[in-house]
Design a binder for these strands. Structure first.
Length: 489
RNA sequence: GGCUGAGUGGCAGAGUGGCUAUGCAGCGGACUGCAAAUCCGUGUACCUCGGUUCGACUCCGGGCUCAGCCUCCA
């Protein structure tokens, strides 16, 4: 049975859906004012695997996955002004870029991708409900004139505030670093509706023209798309406080119902043992990494650590991920996967690992053993090999891996960096032919010439050809005297 | 200052109260014209100090170190 670490209770718990016919998950997605970085890649991939696995357990049609897009906030406004663009122009652009990255990483499309700007009436309704119920207040008359239309959430009214993040309001007040805002009754209160300054994008509301605070949009969109009470809510660990804490406060105060059963947070991506983040400026965009590494390699790298652990980025780790994938595709090379499992034992262990809070490193370990079994039986039991290969592909597919033809993995693309050895230069991927000026036909001719030389025991010529290809980043692998395959190194 | 999480072999990374993780790298062997790939074998480990226990890397307590949150952040 599937167990998930619930961050609300800080324990691993059996996962019991509210409705097994409709398992519902909401994940906080991106604020679209820039390209996604590796931290975003991790959220995308981690919850993609959760989604895939839930679909496998409960049936593809019985899982609803919603991942929102924040398309209005201060940073977006600032960036649009910098670039001299309209808000919509900017957000459409970066939504398209985000989708490109997600597609490259093999991330399934969520069932719904709600945007804040398209749910303004639900947002305003929820704020109104909070005001009506006495959980929210409008900035008073004595406050700054420009905050008159601001509406704040009254944290003191919500009894369970701090449960998710393990904080209590007294400690928070004691250590409060938030700047004193005269409009707030309490430094912990947070804004639900921000009145618009001149020239800012805005929507009409009972409190005047303005825009929503960050937290309220997720409460409104989540309950709108999935109902007041749903199964799983996910996001990066940095959203635990205050974002998710505030979501709970808003949603439960507004609906009077429990908001979410299971809270999941993925760990940070780090660079040199330090959190990769926009504010520190120590981040790599997905785009940059994909210039050097195959997207499936990046995906493997992410899944080779448990989702709650920190993930340290380095080229060395990416190189290892590449080597690991190479091993898997080698096992699949030259076989014809045939359904009809003799790989049950592996599947059982794989699922046990995934059932244990999505333990992907453990699941991958099982895949390695499966690959070894395939290689072991190769040449002696073709039927068993074909069936095990099918199992490897199927289980890999649960992780969104190993879906390609091995030949495409080996020969399809390669980073240009390899050929010239100029690591400092920005690199890009191209088709094999573009990359090296070394067309496939030429590779084939050289391999044939080498086969001929080997037949004649002309080892000098044979090795010369191999070296010539190696200089282009091409590795030859002899299957026998007549069958030689190649791959990009 | 308050709170949270983590410290495993050369590196990465799981897990368990007593029994092989797994991968990469290393070493030995098989295969190969030589390689590559693959297979077989193999070494190195559980931050520290106490406690519980027949027995702890695994449970409990103290310490040290690291990371994170308490402000926007996936």
């Amino acid at each position: 049975m599937l167990q998930i670490h619930n961050n609300l209770t800080k324990r691993k718990e059996p996962f019991v859906p509210i409705d097994p016919k409709n398992v519902r998950m909401y994940v906080c997605g991106m604020t679209v004012y820039d390209l996604c970085h590796l931290g975003h890649a991790r959220v995308l991939v981690v919850f993609d695997v959760v989604y895939r696995y839930l679909r496998r357990v409960y049936g593809a049609e019985h899982v609803t996955y919603v991942r929102n897009v924040t398309d209005i906030d201060d940073k977006i406004i600032a960036r649009a002004n910098e670039r001299g663009e309209k808000i919509e122009q900017l957000t459409e652009h970066f939504i398209a870029e985000m989708t490109r990255d997600a597609d490259a990483l093999g991330v399934l499309h969520p069932g719904e991708e709600p945007r804040a700007t398209r749910h303004m009436s639900e947002i305003i309704d929820m704020i109104q409900t909070l005001v009506d119920k006495g959980y929210a207040y409008q900035a008073g008359k004595g406050d700054r004139a420009d905050s008159l239309g601001d509406v704040y959430y009254d944290v003191s009214r919500f009894e369970h505030y701090g449960q998710l993040s393990g904080k209590n309001t007294d400690d928070l007040r004691a250590g409060a670093r938030v700047e004193v805002d005269v409009a707030k009754q309490d430094p912990l209160d947070f804004v639900l509706w921000k009145s618009a300054k001149p020239g800012e994008p805005c929507w009409e509301s009972p409190w005047g023209k303005g825009r929503p605070g960050w937290h309220i949009e997720c409460s409104a969109m989540a309950t709108c798309c999935l109902g007041n009470h749903f199964d799983i809510h996910g996001g990066g660990l940095d959203l635990q406080f205050p974002h998710h804490e505030n979501e709970i406060a808003q949603s439960e105060a507004a609906t009077g119902e429990k908001f979410v059963n299971v809270w999941m947070h993925n760990g940070f991506v780090r660079l040199d043992e330090e959190k990769m983040s926009k504010s520190l400026g120590n981040f790599f965009t997905i785009r940059e990494v994909l210039e050097k590494y195959d997207a499936e390699v990046v995906r493997f790298f992410i899944l080779n650590s448990h989702y709650r652990s920190p993930l340290n980025y380095s080229d060395k780790h990416l190189d290892e991920a590449k080597a690991a994938l190479t091993t898997f595709y080698h096992a699949l090379r030259g076989v014809t996967p045939v359904e009809g499992g003799n790989g049950q034992a592996y599947a059982v262990r794989f699922e046990a690992a995934m059932d244990d809070d999505f333990n992907t490193p453990e699941a991958i370990a099982v895949l390695f053993e499966l690959a070894r079994e395939i290689n072991r039986l190769r040449g002696s039991d073709a039927q068993a090999v074909d069936r095990l290969a099918a199992e490897l592909v199927r289980l890999g597919g649960c992780l969104g891996l190993l879906a390609r033809d091995p030949e495409v993995f080996f020969q399809g693309r390669r980073p240009t960096e390899i050929q010239a050895g100029c690591a400092s230069r920005t690199t890009t991927t191209h088709n094999a032919e573009v990359a090296s000026g070394f067309p496939e036909a030429k590779i084939k001719i050289l391999i044939e010439a080498r086969t001929e030389a080997r037949k004649n025991k002309d080892w000098a010529e044979s090795d010369r050809i191999r070296d010539e290809l190696a200089a282009q980043g091409i590795v030859l692998e002899d299957g026998g005297p007549q069958s030689t395959t190649w791959r990009w190194e």
